[in-house]
Amino acid sequence: MELKAGMQLKSVVGTTEVVVIRAPDHPGTLTSGGEPMVGRDDDAAAGEVRSGSEGTVLLGKRYVDAAGSVEVLCTKPGDGALALDGEPLEVKSAKPLPSSD
């Protein structure tokens, strides 16, 4: 699937939903619990978390790959680790700015 910034995706193995903040410059498959994620409003059969893809996705956290080519924001938490083409995404460590507002 070609990922685009602003795209909202959901997991088929749990309740996780994400929004794509930065899309990779090549098509890729974003997975949750090892199963491809689908469009937020798409109908899709429920799946199971695959062995080796266990994990929890936390609300409001941002997830990136090591190369920084993809970034997604979790808008609904759930089970099943996130990965892009098999490479696990990690929580982006925040460098907090001072509160200006």
Partner: peptide, 9 residues
């Protein structure tokens, strides 16, 4: 917002 604030921080 996403560039400057962390959710529920």
């Amino acid at each position: 917002l996403l560039g400057t604030v962390e959710f529920a921080s």
